[in-house]
Amino acid sequence: MEKLRILHNDTCPICSREVASYARIADRTGLPLQIDGLEAAPDWGLDRDTAAQSFRVELNGARLEGLDAFRALWERLPGWRWLAWVTGLPGVHWLADLGYRHLAAPALYALHRRRQRRAA
């Protein structure tokens, strides 16, 4: 099975916990998974700020972002395949993608920016 590579905002406590749970499942099941944090953004052709704005994966040379990135990961994780299937349904996919792009991702990015301002 091709290694799935993840790029996520490792400074986000919510994102980090979620990705850590995926990593535990991958370890248990032998799923080849590489997890990159924001320091790897240049390897992905992104700056840190852009990388912090959305969840991304690379699989078979293709890079996916947002809901499609989550679905590519969920399809490979036991216990999560059902969610990949449900979010692949036409109406559900549209709504879930809209929710991620316009609600979840911007909210998490706003929290990221707030943490950066406090740290500065």
Rank of each mutant, 00 (worst) to 15 (best):
L4S: 09
L98N: 04
T50K: 14
A20S: 05
L59T: 14
T87L: 10
H102Y: 04
R101G: 02
T50C: 15
A40S: 10
R117F: 00
P32L: 01
R114Y: 02
R63A: 08
F70T: 08
H112Y: 07
G79D: 08
I6L: 11
N60I: 03
G79W: 02
S54I: 14
R76P: 10
G66E: 03
H112N: 02
D27Q: 14
L73N: 11
A105L: 00
L83N: 07
R5I: 09
A52L: 07
T50A: 15
E2W: 01
F70G: 04
F70R: 05
V19S: 09
M1K: 12
L59P: 13
Q34F: 06
H93M: 07
T87N: 14
L98E: 02
T29M: 00
R17V: 11
I35A: 12
A23I: 14
Q34I: 13
A120P: 02
R5S: 14
E58A: 08
P32Y: 00
P90C: 13
E58H: 13
Y22P: 13
G99H: 06
E18Q: 13
W94T: 06
F55H: 04
L64R: 13
A110T: 08
A52I: 01
R28Q: 11
M1C: 09
R115V: 08
D27V: 01
E65C: 09
P32W: 00
A105F: 00
L83T: 13
L7F: 09
D49A: 04
R101S: 10
R114N: 06
G79T: 00
Q116R: 07
A110E: 05
A23D: 10
A69N: 03
V92P: 03
Y109D: 13
L95W: 12
H93E: 03
V19C: 04
L38K: 05
E58N: 12
E75Y: 02
L31R: 11
Q116L: 11
T29E: 12
M1P: 11
R56A: 14
R117V: 05
L38Y: 01
Q116G: 06
D36N: 05
L4W: 00
